[in-house]
């Protein structure tokens, strides 16, 4: 079995069936292994249903192993931990998702808006890990970094009065018209392989 060949062909089915994630982690560098995880995740978008879930699950498992095997490289970029949390959410591993996002959040005194919003959504779905008060407090912290479409929509969602709701909805529309969006969290190591929605900046 030639892993290089499987990877060159992007034969993901063979990879999942025949190669353990740990084998990838011991055979390749951190960057290359992360690239493989990213490729799997990316191509899972074109494979619907269960194959997509197998690919994503494999990608998450690989990242978890990389986190243990290359702790130094992993910790260099907080987005690795946050991205792992986001990917855990994609495969319904919500507790793990929340744990990794919380770890990423704890790296900061003033966490970036993108991270807070992701953390709120994960923790607040469905109102399970974070209390309503915690969510409101975090959202007010995030809004200090500026009003984007996503931020304004989140604030409108939390509004308790019709007046507040109207005001945030108006701000959301303005942000949308001016293409002001919250940054997207993608690890530095995957940046070259990623195209995200236009007008959405990358988190630095």
């Amino acid at each position: 079995m030639d892993i290089e060949n499987i990877l060159r062909e992007k034969d993901w089915e063979s990879l999942i069936r025949k190669v353990l994630p740990v084998t990838i982690a011991v055979s390749f560098s951190f960057d290359k292994s992360m690239e493989i995880a990213g490729d799997l995740l990316n191509d899972s978008g074109n494979a619907e249903g269960d194959p997509a879930m197998f690919m994503r699950d494999y990608s998450v498992n690989l990242m978890i192993i990389l986190r243990e095997k290359f702790p130094q490289q992993w910790k260099v970029d907080w987005k690795n931990e946050a991205f792992l949390g986001i990917c855990c959410n994609l495969v319904y591993r919500e507790e793990e998702a929340f744990k990794h996002l919380k770890n990423a959040l704890e790296c900061f005194d003033n966490p970036p808006q993108s991270l807070i919003l992701t953390y709120i959504r994960t923790g607040g779905a469905p109102n399970y890990y974070l209390s309503a008060e915690e969510i409101v407090e975090l959202a007010h912290k995030a809004v200090k970094s500026g009003i984007t479409l996503e931020m304004a929509q989140q604030m409108a969602d939390l509004a308790t009065t019709q007046e507040d709701w109207n005001s945030w909805t108006k701000k959301a529309k303005e942000a949308e018209a001016n293409n002001i969006h919250t940054a997207v969290i993608v690890p530095d190591v995957l940046k070259d392989n990623v195209r995200t929605l236009k007008d959405y900046p990358y988190e630095k």
Binding site: L41, N42, S44, G45, N46, I86, N89, L90, T118, R121, A125, P126, L149, E150, Q153, Q154, D157, H181, V184, V186, N193, V194, R195, T196, L197, Y200
Partner: peptide, 26 residues
Amino acid sequence: ERIHEFSFNSIRTYRYKKKIGKNTVV
């Protein structure tokens, strides 16, 4: 109304909400 939640190349997720009575469907 939908809120963009996550995008990574071709993977894109959106959240939709609707208030029904005291509850909200997400």
